Computed example of a mutant assay.
Amino acid sequence: MKIPSGWPFRLGIAGAVALLMLVLWLVLRQLGMPASLSPDALSGWLNGQGVWGPVFLFLMMVLAVVVGPIPTLPVSAASGLAFGVLAGTLLAATGALTGALIAFSVARILGREALREKLSSNPVFASDGSQWLLFWMVFLTRLIPLFSFALISYAAGVTAIHGWRFALASFLGMLPMTFVFAGLGTTFELNPFVTVAAAVVILLVMTTLPWYLSRRPGSRLARWLRLDPKR
């Protein structure tokens, strides 16, 4: 099978990112990052790192989003406990957005071209796919912590969404829960039933909406989402 032009470079980029994340994980563990990853333990460790504390928090969030060995919610809670609500929210959200953009870029480099060719008529993957639809899909999934931040970032990378739209939708969508966890720390718990129910509803909408729009290209919803080829 013939390897597409540019694949050695693409695989090299993906390998470099993977190696960088591995090195980052090993360095943080060597510096004493708690194995338990509880908000109290993490905040205590971060407070003991002096001026490097905010940097380590940022790097932990990047690592959590790109690779996923660290859950993002405890890190968000620790950010508020260690640096206060506003500063903690900004640090956690900035780190998560940076990690999301890295994951998005890796997926775009590796898989975007192939899916665009195979699914040229799909409003999610086509070259002229609806940016409005994709923006709201990313935004909604960011609101529910049950969705894997890393998985959504990689998945978005192979869609038609523009990078800046992905970044904006991710940042706006993650802010509410990041702020809540940074503000309430270990005292806050999500209601499992409500969280799972909301995630299921959003998942159903995201899986059925492209199919519906492909069958009803002239519907009012399609026009609102700017699926008109003349948009």
Results as ranks from 00 to 15, higher is better:
152 I>N: 09
8 P>K: 04
131 Q>H: 10
66 V>M: 09
28 L>K: 03
127 S>A: 13
158 V>H: 05
12 G>M: 10
43 S>W: 08
165 R>K: 13
19 L>A: 15
116 R>H: 13
186 T>I: 09
159 T>F: 10
146 L>M: 15
163 G>D: 03
75 V>L: 15
136 W>D: 01
203 L>M: 13
226 R>Q: 15
29 R>L: 11
174 M>K: 08
180 V>Q: 02
28 L>N: 02
71 P>C: 01
158 V>Q: 05
161 I>D: 02
212 Y>Q: 10
38 S>C: 05
115 L>V: 03
219 S>Q: 05
189 E>L: 13
81 L>Y: 01
218 G>T: 07
41 A>V: 09
189 E>G: 07
117 E>D: 11
222 A>L: 12
84 G>M: 11
76 S>V: 05
106 V>F: 04
150 A>Y: 01
77 A>F: 11
24 L>H: 02
192 P>H: 00
119 L>S: 03
41 A>L: 05
173 G>T: 04
125 F>V: 00
97 L>P: 05
175 L>G: 01
48 G>P: 08
68 G>S: 04
4 P>S: 04
15 G>V: 12
99 G>V: 07
203 L>Y: 10
28 L>D: 03
22 L>Q: 15
2 K>E: 14
136 W>R: 01
122 N>V: 06
41 A>D: 06
215 R>K: 15
167 A>L: 03
97 L>F: 13
31 L>W: 10
81 L>T: 00
190 L>N: 04
197 A>C: 07
63 L>D: 01
10 R>G: 11
103 A>R: 03
57 L>M: 14
20 L>K: 08
118 K>C: 09
13 I>A: 14
163 G>C: 12
53 G>T: 06
218 G>Y: 12
144 I>R: 01
180 V>L: 15
159 T>N: 07
165 R>D: 08
58 F>D: 00
187 T>A: 14
88 G>S: 00
42 L>K: 11
26 L>A: 12
102 I>F: 10
83 F>G: 04
97 L>Q: 01
203 L>S: 13
222 A>I: 06
190 L>E: 01
220 R>G: 12
209 L>E: 00
108 R>L: 04
52 W>S: 03
58 F>S: 00
153 S>W: 00
79 S>E: 06
